[in-house]
């Protein structure tokens, strides 16, 4: 199965990269923008057929390495 891990800066954290992207997009004429946040997506090809177990492993990976919970939120989905 394929795990998709989405990681984003917490709402309470200033995201200067997202802000720079937002400013750049606005300068290109995308006036509709309220705000931009930049995160990352990690795709993991997992040798596991049980979805519950897959989710468990994904969350464990987030907790041990993929996510810094001081500053980031995450979600795991199966594709």
């Amino acid at each position: 199965m394929r795990l998709i891990v989405r990681i984003a800066p917490k709402k309470s954290i200033l995201d200067p990269q997202g802000e720079a992207i937002s400013n750049s997009l606005k300068s290109l004429g995308f006036d509709q923008i309220n705000s931009v946040r930049q995160g990352k997506i990690i795709e993991i090809d997992l040798n596991e057929s049980d979805e519950n177990r897959g989710m468990e492993i994904g969350k464990e990976m987030c907790n041990t390495l993929l996510v810094n919970k001081v500053i980031e939120d995450f979600s795991v989905t199966i594709e």
Binding site: L14, P16, Q17, N68
Partner: peptide, 17 residues
């Protein structure tokens, strides 16, 4: 050391990037 949990907090990208 912050990533290893031996010190509190973390170091973010510099505010002016």
């Amino acid at each position: 050391l912050t990533e290893a949990g031996l010190l509190e907090g973390t170091l973010l990208r510099n505010s002016k990037l």
